[in-house]
Write a protein that binds this DNA or RNA. Structure first.
Length: 426
RNA sequence: GCGGGCGUCGCCAAGUGGUUAAGGCAGCGGCUUGUGGCGCCGCUAUUCGGGGGUUCGAAUCCCCUCGCUCGCCCCA
């Protein structure tokens, strides 16, 4: 036994598990590509300041969950806890203009120092999509639809979409003012967590799960009542358009995203199959972030999907590995060289070809081919090598004892015919 | 960061103070070194997450620690 272990909240993904990851990622990437969204890659490591300014100093993520350290040049560095701030930074730095329109996605690891739980790790992965420079409510609709469609392509059932609006900055500040006043008066009826948040992050109190607090909040001022006519209309339009597209949603006036940069539309997809970490996708509009970070006034909206959670609720049909098409059984000096060469030729047909490298007895190699459930086998031994040929046959259960075919190593036409008739059809 | 449950081979698991730590699956070898699926035989934990203590004796009791898990918090 040695004591070298992975860090808490991190995991090794082994080949068997990665089948599902790869399939899920493939479906996602195809849908993104069809939606004309471009990839962006930003560093995993950023200066700490970026997240403090981008996400908000008082948020839990920044105040107690970041992996922050000094590098050898005495710079404070942080492993990114989310992707939006980095994307905003990269765009500003690379000269975004105020009328730039960009649809971007990114996928990769994020880091947050939290207590691990099902669907929550310290190193986790997100797919993020950001629509930069888009202001109209139609962009809100498109991005929600995109998330819906990705989740749909993955065959995820029992999804709930919740939406809310936070209004613009002014709406939010006006509300916050009277909400805080109300909170102070009713402070003693609130749970301790909520009391603590009054001055730190009052909006989050709306999202409290404490049943008594929930009840008390029923009489609190509503953000919705503080919306300007314009904000209100925007929200109504959003709902209309989602209804037109037949995307089912539920309004949740208590839905508040945890990061400071959100405005107007906020949305969240949850699944009942995830236990307490039920959010698979969360997103919203952040019209002030880019300006606040020193860029031009640029509206934007985005979402992030938690890949670990997504994998948990994706169907197990996505975890099925690709079968071996041809297992090459080979033994003998010349035969082994011929087999190596043949394996390369066969892979050009997009077949999954496994070349046995063991040099074991034929019967052992057959057993291995059987264990792998290879669809077919090729045999090359001394006899075949002497005649510059190989034998091939189907190997599945139904065709047990299927008759072999002998094909010359030079006769590509015969090989191709065999492949077309047996492996490549349909 | 707070509270509950758990931790015996790669996986599932018996064992709750007395000595060889069951069994199943998987793996490996053999019967069967040029043809697989079945069957049979054999092998695979000096050790019970780690450390300390109690005891003549501990996987079994106590303490600490690590990890997993569920809930809170937070979020994806």
């Amino acid at each position: 036994m040695n004591n070298l272990k992975n860090l808490r909240g991190t995991v090794d993904l082994l080949p068997d598990q990665l089948i599902k990851w790869q399939n899920v990622e493939k479906i996602i990437l195809e849908q993104l590509s069809r939606s004309s969204i471009k990839e962006i890659r930003t560093p995993i490591l950023e200066m700490t300041e970026l997240f403090i300014r981008g996400i908000g100093e008082e948020t839990d993520v920044v105040s107690k969950e970041m992996y922050t350290f000094m590098d050898r040049g005495k710079r404070s560095c942080t492993l990114r806890p989310e992707g939006t701030a980095s994307v905003a930074r990269a765009l500003i730095q690379n000269g975004i203009s105020s009328n730039t329109l960009q649809k971007l996605w990114y996928m990769g690891p994020m880091f947050r120092y939290e207590r691990p739980q099902a669907g929550r790790q310290r190193q986790f992965h997100q797919l993020g999509v950001e629509f930069i420079g888009y202001e109209s409510v139609r962009s809100d609709v498109e991005i929600i639809t995109l998330a819906w469609d990705i989740l749909g392509k993955l065959g995820i059932k029992e999804l709930n979409l919740e939406i809310n609006t936070l209004g613009d900055i002014n709406d939010r500040l006006n509300f916050q003012k009277s909400f805080i006043k109300w909170l102070e008066i009713n402070k003693n009826s609130l749970d301790l967590d909520s009391q603590r948040r009054i001055n730190k992050n009052p909006l989050r109190i709306l999202d409290s799960k404490n049943s008594q607090t929930k009840k008390v909040l029923e009489n609190a001022p509503k953000l919705f009542d503080f919306l300007s006519d314009k904000s209100h209309k925007r929200y109504t339009d959003l709902k209309k358009q989602l209804e037109f597209l037949k995307i089912p949603f539920v309004e949740n006036f208590n839905l508040v995203r945890g990061l400071d940069y959100y405005t107007h539309t906020a949305f969240e997809f949850t699944s009942g199959n995830l236990g307490s970490q039920s959010t698979v996708c969360g997103g919203g509009r952040y019209d002030n972030l880019i300006k606040q970070m020193g860029g031009p006034n640029t509206q934007a909206i985005g979402f992030a999907i938690g890949l670990e959670r997504l994998i948990l609720i994706s169907g197990k049909e996505l975890a099925v590995p690709r079968n071996t098409d041809i297992y090459i059984i080979n033994q003998g000096l010349i035969a082994e060289s011929l087999a190596m060469d043949l394996s390369r030729k066969l892979r050009n047909y997009d077949l999954l070809v496994e070349l046995d490298l063991s040099g074991d007895s034929f019967s052992k190699q057959f057993k291995k081919a059987n264990k792998l459930k290879s669809k077919s086998i090729i045999v090359i031994g001394d006899n075949e090598a002497a005649n510059n040929e190989f034998t091939i046959r189907l190997f599945d259960k139904e065709s047990f004892g299927n008759k072999e075919e002998v094909i010359s190593l030079e006769n590509d036409i015969k090989l191709e015919n065999w492949l077309n008739n047996n492996l490549l059809l349909r």
